[in-house]
Amino acid sequence: MKKALKAPDTGALGNRGKKGLRYHIQKYGAYYVMLIPLFIFLIIFCYLPMGGTVMAFQDFRPVRGFFKSDWVGLENYADVFSDKMFWSRLKNTVIISVLKILFTAPAPIILALLLNEVRNRKFKRTVQTVVYMPRFISWVVVVSIIQSLLDVQGGPINTLLMNLGIIDEPILFMGSKKLFRTLLVATEVWKTVGWSSIIYLSALTNINPTYYEAAELDGAGRFQKMWYITLPLIKPTFMILLILSMGSILSAGFDQIYAMSNSAVLEVGDIIDTYVYRRGLAEMNFSYAAAVGLFKSVVSVVLVCGANWLARRTENESLF
């Protein structure tokens, strides 16, 4: 990550290899100590709970706990994989994730490039603040705003479209199978684009201005500078973010979908997480939920490693 952000002309992080770990701990001891709380946090909240994965192989009953619940081997997986609903939810998840990646990946680059070209600082700052804002609004709030905007009876969007003569009948946006995924992607882009563009903006500021000066001397225009200098130099950042997003391809955004979906769009909008939430928590099938969770994690690791390998092979850029 660091490497990507500081690419291409900053040096490596240091020459740790030469002087050894002990030297570094002595020299930067205080900083290492400062890392301890984070390590403890990670151990308590990220590593210890991994032990709970055993649930996936048990008929877990909360009252009995991990030690007294019966072992069932791979029975939970048999349940998961023989469940038709699971497969349709998996399909939904992948479709929604891929759509989201397709649209949310390039959008912040475009925004960052546009912002980068703005010369009026006041205007730039204002725009930046305004586009970051949605990131801080919870999905529940966003969804209720969207619901009232898109309301079929007297919602402003429907009223506007009717008055403009674009549609004859109000559209049931929230209950339309055709429009639901579009709504998911559009709201996701709206909510995340500003925040994600920060990373690209920082990558842009890291580009050595001498490249631009040299290009200008050679007579390059704005568009050419963008195409031949800016984009290639932020490519590493883009690749890293893309690889990371592979890890969440089976997630697709629980908060958003849980708040937005209803029985009318369940068929196209229900994802693994929302499905497992209902199966696992509402019906107390903790083992089923854990089995799916583990399956998701394995797939995510494979996807991240695969994307990383592919990126290294084809573009010579990779996360690790």
Binding site: D151, V152, Q153, P170, L172, M174, G175, N262, S263, A264, V265
Partner: peptide, 8 residues
């Protein structure tokens, strides 16, 4: 019938 009856 209320058009939103199935969506809430």
């Amino acid at each position: 019938l209320d058009q939103s009856i199935c969506t809430g």
